[in-house]
Design a protein around this nucleic acid. Structure first.
Lengths: 201, 201
DNA sequence: CGAATTGCATACCGACCGGTATGGCTCGTC
DNA sequence: GACGAGCCATACCGGTCGGTATGCAATTCG
């Protein structure tokens, strides 16, 4: 909300940090590379962030969390037809460019890398994942009350599975380096979700 | 197949390397830690492996590939009832101990870490993933010919999705650090696979 | 039995890492 | 217009990294 000029350099470091972490992972991310990308030096970085870890955590909560919030959570919340919104979201996310398939989902990357080795990272990443999952669970539950999906569905487990499978699709496509594979895999997820819909009687 | 005594130390290095890579990831895996675990020194390691990368690749093809082959590929190949064998395999793998949930699937870990940054790793990991996927695809196709699953199923995409979703379940459970989450997630995968079965008419 | 090769330990190297201490420049404030 | 505080550059440090050169004991082979 503030507009001090120093906040701009902080933001530049944050975005360059995100890019570096996205490419190399957190542990292999090099402070020197981040500074090289911004044209800044260590004085600037360590003025705004006490340590590399603080920068990494800031990237998680200020870049990754907000990005996922507006791209995957917001479109489903307060949707008139929750089930339709979910399917539409999957359809919309079928189009990823080469770069995004190559590097994968930033959230999933960090979860796989950091969850076993650093509890601070794990907890913050878990908050993001839980919010995502909760949003889908809510959508399924509201759709259930509206009669859109089968009444016997375990919404919690289903939402968990959708999120998991989604990340799995991105992860596998990342190894295959193929947008086609990603689309084929996500289309199967779409079929699963479509199968949750209540049969028209 | 040979039984020279030096092959034993090579194997010890290989297994200690696998354990270290499983815990820390490849890039953060420390040569010193691997040697410390075995009680050996650098002379031994660099006598058997030209570099850290060669050790890492050897771990992939000699430990991870063979392990996955016998645990996930072999049980499905040449099964009398392929579809049942698939379900049985999923049921069997629902029981993982805390440690395995914490550290996740070694194959998936390395895929996420190394696929974008090293082509040699990516290709070897991709061979493993493809063999796994092909085994499931074959099983589905044979089950399809036997009338076990719906005739209109896209076996290739379905096998791709099963493998992807599976890895996704392990990955999410790893962040949650909960075997319960893993089981709930995998049970949804089981339900998906069960849904592929041909309805009894 | 001598010679050469295998198997591994020890000591050491340059590169890079994250982090710090210091200082200078700029700007708002009294 | 002296002054203090925010902002950032420069230089430097200890530690860890993967990798190498050398040496020595054991084993194999001529």
């Amino acid at each position: 909300m503030e507009h001090r000029p120093s906040d701009l350099t902080r933001q530049r470091i944050l975005e360059a940090g995100f890019a570096e972490i996205h490419r190399q992972g957190y542990q292999s991310a090099s402070i020197a590379n981040i500074l090289g990308a911004t044209g800044l030096t260590k004085g600037a970085l360590y003025h705004h962030f006490p340590s590399k870890k603080d920068l990494g955590l800031a990237v998680v909560v200020e870049i990754i969390a907000t990005g996922l919030e507006e791209r995957l959570v917001q479109p489903v919340r307060s949707a008139a037809q929750p089930a339709r919104a979910l399917l539409a979201l999957i359809d919309a996310k079928q189009s990823l460019d080469e770069e995004q398939v190559r590097l994968g989902c930033p959230l999933n990357n960090l979860m796989q890398e950091m969850s076993p080795v650093d509890e601070d990272f794990r907890l913050r990443l878990n908050r993001i994942l839980s919010r995502w999952q909760d949003a889908f669970e809510d959508a399924l539950r509201r759709a259930q009350e509206a009669g859109e999906v089968r009444p016997d569905l375990n919404c919690h487990a289903a939402a968990l599975f959708i999120v998991s499978a989604w990340e799995g699709c991105v992860g596998v496509a990342k190894n295959m380096q193929s947008v086609e594979t990603y689309r084929a895999c996500l289309s199967q997820l779409r079929a699963y979700v479509a199968g949750l819909l209540a049969p028209p009687r």
